[in-house]
Design a protein around this nucleic acid. Structure first.
Lengths: 346, 346
DNA sequence: ATGAAAGCGCTAACAT
DNA sequence: ATGTTAGCGCTTTCAT
């Protein structure tokens, strides 16, 4: 492999000068600069990253902590973040983590083995070791679609967005609205709060039996949540699912039960993943600006890494938007899947 | 950051000895070894990767070339490969590439900037520069779900699998079978061949107007393909989509046209992505063993990197399986969406 | 069995 | 404006 010395020798100069040219520093004779540049192009010389990283004490690698069981929104998001980071000159190292503490420990160990320039987290960590590790190492952190300590974060106003979505449901006439939510992620909690607040705002009573809490936010768990809800009570005309994938799983179960969407039950999702516009029926949902979130996450981290003001956490709140499609409609007259006549028995 | 020298000093030995212990070499006094090991644990010392990589001339990083517009199958696949590679001690660097040559050139440039230990490709590259680069650099390559030169590959018997799928369609009574296929990827071509062969095998005539070729294998392009087909001819009772995502897009259009699946038209996909079991109707499809493919891809690359026999390409063919769900059924009597009466006009 | 020394490719003072 | 030098953290001869 051709090195900086080779270039220097062939031009009849020193490695320092070549280094200056490569790194765009001033104080280089322009004739020499041209000469060096053209030789570099000709030979295809590329600086050795390991060597640079050693002397610069920067790895040009950032870590991203993601849930082991990610849904499509998260998958799309981390693909975007990865690409943005790449274009800013960073490599991305993934740390897949489950929700239990032993998995977090494992993640922390692997994290400690890497000399990283920064961290993106898509999942709240509970082990105090993380926070300690990050602050000891002076590592910039940005939390994307979640919150972590007082580090910078990028996302939407979860509660507000959920509030608006449920409010829309009420607005078109629904009074009996169920919800599938989850634990383990802050956004689930926030969305549930928004749901309850919208109910309260509209004078609807809070009924915990209308909410099912699942472990992960995937379609599979959407099925569990919906089955659970159906078992408890069939008297509802709308469902708010904390994520689109949850909604897709829920619709699956509804269909299997012969309950039509949206004729019998309206379904509202959250995220607006790519698939939501292709499934039958097209999903009404609250759109998160996923590209912008990814972009801002990468940029925020880059700023923290280069700017150095690690401690100054700021929250970037991007605009959400209710996207009305086919899975929601006003409730039918005398509605409820289990009307007064109790015509549908499982 | 604590270094090998620190450890050496504190134990009262030399860096060489510590290095030997860290790398599990022989010839170290066992008492000293214990001492060093415990100090390492205590201090949390971790060898600096950049330094190691510099002297070892290995980056512990592998590149993966993936299509810029990936479908869910590909996304799932590269997530799996990434994880397997990680557990084998490699970092993964993504190279997203479009299908045009200028994008390939760009990719090649970026590739050349990295000192990689190996390459995974999910997409056939056309620029001869790639092959030259790989062979000049002595880079092991493995092609996953595609073929590239005579490098190792991992995947299913595409043609055979498609053949079986279409054969199943014929078996349940379909005679007018359309297909949405694509260009740009070898698997699309192979699946189309399988489709044609199954028709021929069953004495059905080859009709190119029954096939629509799209650019990418996503749901969006599934919609284009289906619209295209519908415009040409509405006389068909089944559709074979080259990927599940294509099938999902196609079903979308069919529904919008009031054509029922599977009552009016059966739809068969390929891949068995996660979503296929949740959509309405559940998709009948040809399953690719995605986890095994990912696993084998990572292992094959690892073997090539460590074994060194770069040139010896081998093909790993994993078993596919037809998964019959709800989107296919025997054709209705007097079938065809556009019966003899021509009752459905667009 | 262990240590000294050289060197991987690069950058950043420091000199000039 | 440019060259010299030292050193980043590690592994690996080569001695001992």
């Amino acid at each position: 492999m051709i090195s900086i010395k080779d270039i220097a020798r062939q031009v009849g100069t020193s490695p320092s000068t070549v280094s200056r040219v490569v790194n765009g520093k001033a104080y280089v004779n322009s004739k020499k600069r041209e000469q060096i540049l053209s030789l570099i192009k000709e030979t295809g010389y590329v600086p050795n990253k390991a060597a640079r990283s050693m002397v610069l004490k920067r790895s040009f690698a950032v870590g991203i902590i993601v849930p082991d069981t990610f849904n499509l929104f998260q998958q799309q998001l981390f693909s975007i973040i990865e690409r943005r980071l790449e274009s800013l000159g960073y490599h991305t190292i993934f740390f897949f983590t489950r929700l239990d503490l032993s998995s977090e420990e494992d993640c922390l160990d692997r994290l400690a083995m890497e000399k990283l320039d920064g961290i993106v987290i898509l999942q709240e960590m509970h082990l105090p070791g993380f926070f300690e590790h990050f602050s000891r190492a002076g590592l910039p952190v940005v939390a994307s679609t979640c919150k972590y300590h007082d580090y910078s974060s990028v996302g939407v106003k979860e509660k507000q967005a959920a509030f608006e979505g449920v409010n829309y449901l009420v607005g078109i006439g629904h009074k009996k609205i169920n919800m599938i939510s989850g634990v383990g992620f802050a956004f689930g909690t926030r969305r549930t709060e928004g749901y309850y607040e919208a109910l309260a705002f509209n004078g609807l009573s809070r009924d915990e039996s209308r909410v099912s809490s699942v472990q992960y936010y995937t379609a599979e768990f959407g099925m569990y949540g919906m089955s659970d809800l159906l078992q408890k009570n069939r008297d509802f005309t709308a469902l708010f699912a904390a994520t689109d994938e949850l909604a897709i799983g829920a619709i699956r179960v509804l269909r299997d039960e012969g309950i039509r969407v949206p004729e019998d039950v309206s379904v509202l999702g959250f995220d607006d993943i790519y698939m939501s516009n292709y499934i039958v029926p097209r999903l009404t949902t609250i759109r998160q600006p996923i590209s912008e979130i990814g972009e801002q996450t990468a940029m925020a981290l880059h700023r923290s890494i280069t700017g150095g003001n690690v401690s100054a956490g700021f929250d970037i709140e991007l605009p959400h938007r209710l996207v009305i499609r086919e899975s929601t409609a006003p409730p039918a007259a005398g509605s409820g899947t289990d009307g007064p006549e109790g015509k549908r028995l499982s």
